[in-house]
Design a protein around this nucleic acid. Structure first.
Lengths: 342, 342
DNA sequence: GAGAGAAATGTAAAGCTTTTCATTGCATAT
DNA sequence: ATATGCAATGAAAAGCTTTACATTTCTCTC
């Protein structure tokens, strides 16, 4: 950096006091006399001093930085959660370091090292798995886990504070909505195979069918990967393979938008011929044509809650082994309606 | 933190060497004998040691962290630029700290303090203005600016390395595209008033009209704020105020999508009655109905270029006073076509 | 086998802050 | 005037690393 950096010593010299007094003026102004405080403040102003955060962190063992592990910042779903995290973080004097993992284990580990290397106080996990290596250690660390809060996906077999939505319940709600409209042949486009979200949402879909006495048909379930094109492909596959369903429940909104594109391309109307329901309520869900019926996740709120839990965890030191389940909501918009009469 | 932290000293003791040797084993393994290196590596493995990044940073005066100031991470436009930054950063061993400013000066300053406080080596500015206070000092700092690279918007009167696209030229291209299709009455929906992007794109629009001998009509220019609803309002206002234009060039894609919604609501077809052209090529531009004709900005590439410039800046120490202009491209999709014949 | 030179290792300082403990200064009470 | 106590300040250690310089150990040559 080589910038003749201004240190606390420079300020002390200019103010004619010891460095301890400068530190106190900054940290606990009440215990320093008014006269010297003024002098010190002037000196700080004159020199343009700001405390070297590294040195402070080294001394206090606190960085006030929280790492957030995100699979993909490009995904607007995550970015709104980040806004919620940000808001609470900055209100409590924390900064967040966003770790874009791309689902690559080596990237996850590199960010986990951040916490281990004392560059961050804790970690928020939006990626659905803890960066643990075989020995049950976090990237080589014995036993004690750093402060962590799991977000959005259940991680089985690990008791860490968790914030999540009831994916199974919400999927059940979405599917029941279609059933109540009168649909009996309801397709589903899944998310990526290993994903827990995928499993939970599929389970909710199946339970709703079951409860309504509708037999589950494997033919009506297409694989997907949460992308728009995979939604298109999913619909095409289902249409090609048998009689047309009257509704499709997609595991996220992007795929639902892809599904609508594919249906339109085949000359089918939405919701006239086929109803489509998504999941997430992303930004464009209300503005596409037709506006998408979907499950609204209060993303901002999820982020806020998780960060609040982290702050509590850091301040109390204790680990509140708690699971917060955030309420979701079905937004009924234009893409779903009753099936065409017989 | 209170985690009986493992320090370099613990490793040294276990390996029976001095801490200097441990440090060297980590830093310059070539200058330590094979035998001791093995012993040290074993001790590191056994203790699960990782170097305390704060202490290292304090010593080396380098953090390998770059702050990126973003107005709004929620905006997918920015998030893809971030991916580009991320990619180059991690390839060079840097981490990025995303500073979501919400366009609030106090937040910008708080992140600028990060650089001043030696918690970051440099700053990438996506927000269009440098967090300078009156005295021409960066948040109180005299003279020397920290390493900064400006992205996406020109900042007048400041000679810092810049990466941007040619907004005026791209807007000109988009407008000329409509003119070449045969349109003569072309509306424009602007971005936020103070924004430089707004001005540049408006200028490009005007130049294209001028070159084609089409008189500029203030009536055909509506204000906007880059949001979907503002695009809707813009179109409604133009339609309400006079004869219908046959095309609309919007200053970004969100507003273009809003414009399409509003046109459809009025029973107008796109592009049959009115052509719409956007700007940015956001993720959903290709999947909406009709697919949006727009200016493609290679966002990832922009991010990569800027971060590469930053790395160069940090490594060479010199400030390459350079302006890189990234090429844009007109993507002709379904939302634009020739005007209906007379 | 001695000595020179190179290689390997150790010692200690520096980087900047916070904080404990000690000291100074002052006011009040005796 | 002296003692007592409190408020304000200072000196110095600690936090962990890197690295310049000093020292030791080794290798090779004569």
């Amino acid at each position: 950096m080589a910038n003749g950096a201004i240190t606390i010593e420079d300020v002390a010299r200019l103010a004619g006091v010891s460095i301890a007094t400068v530190s106190r003026t900054l940290h606990r102004p009440d215990i320093v006399s008014e006269k010297t405080r003024k002098r010190v403040e002037q000196a700080i102003e004159a020199t343009g001093y700001t405390t070297n955060a590294m040195a402070r962190s080294l001394r206090t063992m606190q960085t006030h930085v929280i790492v957030v592990l995100v699979p993909n910042i490009g995904n607007p779903f995550f970015s709104e959660i980040l806004l919620g995290i940000e808001a609470v973080a900055s209100a409590h004097g924390f900064n967040i370091l966003i770790g874009n993992t791309d689902n690559k284990p080596e990237r996850e580990k590199s960010f986990a090292a951040y916490v281990r290397g004392h560059q961050a106080d804790g970690m928020l996990l939006l990626n659905g798995h803890v960066p643990l290596d075989n020995g049950g250690r976090l990237q080589g660390r014995p036993a004690a886990l750093p402060p962590m809060v799991i977000m959005c996906e259940r991680i089985p077999g690990l008791s860490l504070p968790t914030v999540r939505i009831d994916n199974e319940g919400a999927a059940h709600l979405a599917t029941r909505h279609l059933i109540e409209l009168g649909h009996r042949s309801i397709a589903h486009i899944k998310g990526p195979e290993e994903n827990i979200l995928t499993k939970d949402r599929l389970a909710g879909y199946r339970r709703a069918l079951e409860e309504a006495g509708i037999p589950f048909e494997a033919r009506l379930v297409a694989p997907g990967d949460f992308s728009i094109p995979s939604g298109q492909r999913g619909v095409e596959r289902i249409l090609d393979e048998g009689p047309r369903p009257t509704a499709v429940f997609c595991s996220n909104d992007e795929m639902a938008m892809g599904a609508i594109v594919a249906l339109k391309q085949r000359g089918l109307s939405v919701p006239g011929d086929v109803s489509v329901v998504g999941f997430d309520d992303i930004q464009f869900a209300g503005s596409c044509d037709p506006p998408l019926t979907t499950i609204h996740q209060p993303r901002r709120h999820i982020g806020e809650t998780a960060m609040a839990l982290m702050v509590e965890l850091l301040e109390s030191g204790s680990v509140p082994e708690r699971e917060v389940v955030i309420e979701t909501e079905l937004l009924q918009r234009g893409s779903s309606g009753p099936p065409r009469g017989p």
